[in-house]
Amino acid sequence: MTRRQPEYRLGGGTITDREAFYTALGAALNGPGGYYGGNLDALADCLRGGFGPTPPFTLVWRDAGIARSHLTGTVFLGERALSYFDAILDTLRAGGVAVDLR
């Protein structure tokens, strides 16, 4: 019998800047006022354990289009230039999180 991985829901309707993203993610994964990073490096650290759920898990990101339209700006991950939204997705997926954008 295959065990289903945990699923968390992130409401993206209020994610209009980076701070709002990390606040919403912390609440989605650790409850109100919860912490799960404050920048991409801290997010990667949290994904390694000790700050709440450790992957593998699924993040269902509702209203992701709102966040995508606001989390802009170029971030370089290695030699790749990504929008901040795409850099978040890359960091989550590299850390073992299955992301379901809705």
Rank of each mutant, 00 (worst) to 15 (best):
G12E: 03
G31M: 03
A28F: 02
G78H: 03
A42L: 14
T74Y: 10
G38P: 12
G13I: 01
R62I: 07
I66F: 02
F57S: 08
G26W: 01
A81C: 06
R80W: 08
D41F: 12
F57A: 12
R62W: 08
G12M: 09
L40R: 06
T58R: 14
D63P: 03
L29Q: 13
T14F: 09
A20M: 04
G73V: 05
V75I: 12
N39E: 14
E7T: 15
T58E: 08
A28S: 11
I15F: 04
F21K: 02
E79T: 12
E79C: 04
G49T: 11
N30W: 00
L47Q: 12
A27F: 04
I66T: 14
T58D: 06
P55A: 11
Y8M: 03
R48K: 15
Y8A: 03
S69I: 01
G26V: 01
G78A: 03
A64W: 10
R68I: 01
P55H: 11
L25Q: 04
T16H: 10
D63L: 08
G12P: 05
D45L: 13
D63K: 10
A44M: 06
H70R: 06
R68C: 05
L71I: 06
T23P: 10
T54A: 15
R68G: 00
G65E: 14
F21P: 01
Y8L: 07
G52Y: 05
T72E: 08
P32W: 10
N39C: 11
E79V: 04
G65Q: 13
A81M: 11
W61V: 10
G26Q: 03
P56W: 06
P53V: 05
T23I: 13
G33S: 08
A64Q: 08
Y35F: 15
A64I: 03
L43Q: 10
F57L: 09
L82V: 00
G26N: 09
Y35P: 14
Y35I: 09
L47M: 03
L71E: 09
W61T: 05
T54D: 10
E79A: 11
P32K: 15
E19A: 12
G33E: 01
T58Q: 11
V60N: 10
L59W: 05
F76H: 12
W61Q: 09
Y36P: 13
G49S: 13
T16S: 09
L82G: 07
G38R: 15
R68N: 03
G31K: 02
L47I: 00
G13F: 05
Y36A: 07
S69W: 04
G49P: 08
L43A: 05
G33H: 10
L25K: 02
D17V: 00
D17H: 07
D41A: 14
E19K: 14
V60S: 11
G33A: 07
T74Q: 13
Y35R: 13
P53A: 12
A28W: 04
G31W: 07
D41Y: 13
L77M: 09
P55N: 07
E7Q: 15
L82I: 08
D17P: 00
T72Q: 14
